[in-house]
Nucleic acid binder design. Structure first.
Length: 429
RNA sequence: GGAGGGUUGCCAGAGCGGACGAAUGGGGCGGCCUCGAAAGCCGUUGUGGCCUUCGGGUCACCGUGGGUUCGAAUCCCACACCCUCCGCCA
């Protein structure tokens, strides 16, 4: 959420930011108007309440002096003022609610160094690592949705039978590989990140803090009977850990990681790049996340990217790093770097990690603060996060990339300890 | 799912209609004392909004949301969460 005071004090800055994102900067008119209305009504209400408080104290004093019968006139005036205050308060509440609703739908402002651009096509490729798209042999050109079922490691049909399309089932060494990937990601970040195993079903407020609600309600699974939401990413519970809390500066940055299932309805995306594991409703992911001071945020952002990137590199996959343009940023993000792996069989670049800096946008929504070591008061935290490893797409790229001339799949060495000694997935017999 | 008890400041805990933003104790911070420390003594110690001539003023917050009242931490209603017991259960 943007700071309404920023809109008030530096409207041009806000409008320029919104324009860069392709949002209508015209909303600031209404924001400023509502802000003034809210403050005017609240000031009036507070004045009235001050008078009521004063009169009530006078009445109290009269009662103590045993002159309670002289209080009638004061009570009448106080009641009048109280009624008026109540009416004014309703106006203030209505305006404040509308203001908040508008602010909740408004995205974060892009960072100054976030590249300009309108859409995905304008994202900047920072670098490409490993073989490029032409550097793969014919054995590696079989898409995972073909070789997975063939090798008995991916059961798309059974997944659909159980839960519908875009739900998949891994089996045998395919399931082991999925588990190995999450273990690997957790273990290699355990040097600095506290491992969390959070709930995957959360309250509405929890989804609001990170930005999934209210704007993207259709993208999430909602359990109506209990009014709980299935998390689309561990970012949701991990960010909300510190909701309404005040951390000490000397404990920052706080680094957390979690392996969870992630649930996404993917409304509207049916039929489009949804084959196999390209896009699924439920998947496993290890998320790394940090709370930082504004001063620390830049270095932490670099660190998260380095960590997310190094797993992919060490797995021997070809990948590239994108700097998302302002128009392609997620609602809460000020700057995002994407890691995309190349899947030679599917012949596609697949987004496997989005490493984002949210400035104080999420912190303001969820009231995440810290107490500076120097000076007084509190400041909003900065939040950052990225996928350390998202299973399905990495799994797909690995299987396609690792395919050998005999049809077996070579498992990268660093996964061997997690694969009960298997170095290959045997070929179809 | 059923019955009962609870939720107050950093912590413990009092307050149950008016002088309560909140006793008291502990903790923290500053000071006195000391070579230094302990003990003791003194002072101080929440968050947020709005206004400000930057001195301050004012409002709100005692789980959350409503209500009663001139006035609510205190009374009423609903909900959430926690604890205990019963039931059920990995």
């Amino acid at each position: 959420m943007l700071d309404i005071r920023l809109v008030r004090d530096d409207r041009t800055l806000v409008e320029n930011g919104l324009r860069r994102r392709g949002e209508d900067p015209g909303v600031t008119d209404r924001l400023v108007e509502l802000d003034e209305l809210v403050r005017r009504s609240q000031a009036r209400r507070d004045d009235l309440r001050a008078e009521v408080n004063d009169l009530s104290q006078q009445i109290g004093a009269l009662h103590r002096d045993g002159r309670g019968d002289e209080a009638a006139e004061l009570q009448r005036r106080s009641r009048e003022l109280g009624d008026e205050a109540k009416a004014v308060d309703q106006d203030a509440d209505a305006a404040a609610a509308e203001l908040r609703e508008l602010l909740l739908h408004l995205p974060n402002l892009p960072a100054d160094d976030c590249p300009d651009g309108e859409s995905e096509a304008d994202n900047v490729v920072l670098r490409v690592e490993g073989p490029d798209a032409d550097g793969y042999g014919p054995d590696q050109r079989v898409p995972h949705w073909e070789l997975g079922p063939e090798l008995g490691i991916l059961d798309i049909e059974r997944g659909a039978k159980l839960s519908g399309s875009m739900f998949v089932m891994y089996r045998g060494l395919g399931a082991t590989l999925a588990r190995a990937l999450t273990q690997l990601a957790l273990d290699r970040n355990a040097d600095a990140f506290e491992e969390i195993r959070p709930p995957t079903l959360v309250r509405t407020e929890t989804m609001v803090s990170t930005g999934q609600l209210p704007k993207f309600e259709d993208d999430a699974y909602h359990i109506e009977r209990d009014d709980l939401w299935a998390i689309p990413t561990a970012e949701v519970p991990l960010t909300s850990l510190a909701r309404d809390e005040i951390l000490a500066e000397d404990e920052l940055p706080v680094r957390l990681m979690a392996h969870t299932s992630c649930f996404r309805r993917e409304a509207g995306s049916a039929g489009r790049d949804t084959r196999g594991l390209l896009r699924v409703h439920e998947f496993d992911k290890v998320e790394i996340l940090a709370y930082a001071t504004p001063e620390q945020a830049g270095a932490v952002h670099d660190e998260l990217l380095a960590r997310a990137e190094s797993v992919i590199a060490d797995l021997g996959l070809g990948y590239r790093i994108l700097d998302l343009c302002a128009g392609d940023l997620g609602i809460a993000s000020a700057r995002t770097w994407d890691i995309e792996v190349y899947a030679p069989g599917a012949d596609q670049w697949l987004e496997v990690s989005s490493v984002s800096w949210f400035s104080d946008y999420q912190a303001r929504r969820g009231n995440l603060r810290y107490r500076p070591a120097e000076g007084k008061g509190t400041r909003l935290l900065h939040t950052l996060n990225g996928s350390a490893l998202a299973v399905p797409r990495v799994w797909a790229a690995l299987v396609e990339t690792g395919r050998q001339p005999d049809g077996s799949i070579a498992i990268p060495e660093l996964l061997h300890p997690y694969m009960r000694g298997h170095t290959h997935i045997p070929p179809h017999s």
